[in-house]
């Protein structure tokens, strides 16, 4: 192993680095931790909320949105339960501070995607692209359904929507 002679690493260390790079390369998206351990399931099943109630703009605008503190305020100005996560929300509501939610789905800038076109005109349910988020007890740390061009093309093909490159690429 002539290459090893010029490095400061031992054989074991090189194998470890190689394996680490291999594994980290395989998982495309980094795990994202949300500031509050949000429970989707409890909001959907017990509070009876729909996705659109908090992620407003999905039906009316091109871009979806993460919930603002005003939305949380309608229920969480006082404690509803006893969880530590809710205490954080109540504190943020009382101080009128936005919770820094982190987006999990972010498209590249060369893709044109309109939410209202897909949700309102196309009548596609949220779960098709985002997975069954309503069953999650913990906030999702990565995309449940990984977004890929292959998936877009397949759906466009099935619904006989134009697959012309300029439809989505700007």
């Amino acid at each position: 192993m002539k290459i090893l002679r010029f490095t400061f690493l031992s054989k074991k260390q090189i194998i470890f680095v190689f394996l680490y790079l291999l594994i980290s390369g395989c998982s495309k998206q980094k795990k994202i931790e949300q500031p509050v351990a949000y429970n989707h399931a409890i909001h959907v099943s017990e509070a009876g909320l729909d996705c659109i109630d908090c992620h407003t703009g999905v039906e009316k605008k091109m871009y979806a949105s993460l919930p603002s503190i005003k939305r949380c305020k309608s229920c969480h100005s006082i404690m509803q339960g006893e969880s530590a996560a809710e205490a954080l929300v109540v504190e943020a509501v009382n101080n009128n501070v936005e919770i820094p939610w982190k987006p999990i789905y972010e498209l590249e800038d060369y893709v044109f995607f309109s939410h209202r076109r897909h949700v309102k005109s196309g009548k596609i349910s949220c779960a098709v692209c985002h997975g069954e988020v309503e069953k999650l007890v913990k906030p999702p740390s990565k995309q449940l359904v990984p977004i890929s061009m292959k998936g877009c093309l397949k759906c466009h093909d099935n619904k006989s929507i134009s697959n012309d490159c300029l439809t989505c690429h700007v």
């Binding site: 009316k60 091109m62 044109f112 309109s114 209202r116 076109r117 309102k120 005109s121 300029l166 700007v170």
Partner: peptide, 14 residues
Amino acid sequence: CHHRLAIAKDVARF
């Protein structure tokens, strides 16, 4: 400016 066409189509459809 075909990005404007994409947006215009989206608005008209909406």
